[in-house]
Design a binder for these strands. Sequence first.
DNA 1: CCGAATCCGCAGCGATACTG
DNA 2: CAGTATCGCTGCGGATTCGG
Lengths: 109, 109
Amino acid sequence: MAAECPSRDVLRRLTGRWGMLVLRVLSDGPQRFSGLRRQIGGISERMLAQTLQGLEADGMVLRRDFQTVPPHVEYALTPLGHEAATRVDTLLGWIEDTLPQIAQGWAQA
Amino acid sequence: MAAECPSRDVLRRLTGRWGMLVLRVLSDGPQRFSGLRRQIGGISERMLAQTLQGLEADGMVLRRDFQTVPPHVEYALTPLGHEAATRVDTLLGWIEDTLPQIAQGWAQA
DNA sequence: CCGAATCCGCAGCGATACTG
DNA sequence: CAGTATCGCTGCGGATTCGG
């Protein structure tokens, strides 16, 4: 069944705490580490590095290292990453649009 | 930002370990507790109950208690639940279709 | 249904290697 | 010291499982 296979790990990295935030920022264009951290806000250096590595391993993010001595690395979305980003955004957008209806249920509970 | 608001909790319940499995089974029609457990496989009673409560609170699942002495309860998808199910399946389906490409990256790493 | 044991995501603190 | 990217160790809390 789908739950036991690797597709779940991929989904986890996408829907995890920071995955989609990173995808959203990167969908506007390539960024470097510090830039991402600044635009996302609230993410620790460690978590950002970890998240990026996960997405890179899945082929969603392309990491370009300029091999300079003050480290300069750029992160960009791959075509696969763009596809993922749009789909995740679709789901997330629907949830946000539907949130009022969901919250409504909360109220009468 | 979207990450801090309740939409994340909803997304978590949907993409969590069991959420989408439940949605998938229920999209074929109403089921009762034992039926769900049998068709999903590998889920504990506790987790199934917990998952159903979460989805019910979000208005995705409708719980109908027949108030009979041998307890008889049925679970069904609400219209909202159907919408959610299709969207989650879309994302999950895409991941499964794309998994070969993702796994390809794994191989050359 | 309850309680204990366990797993896992997430964050914090600090460290590394190098330059100006 | 300041800045850049990454990594390791540690612990908390919630999620999940297990056993009655």
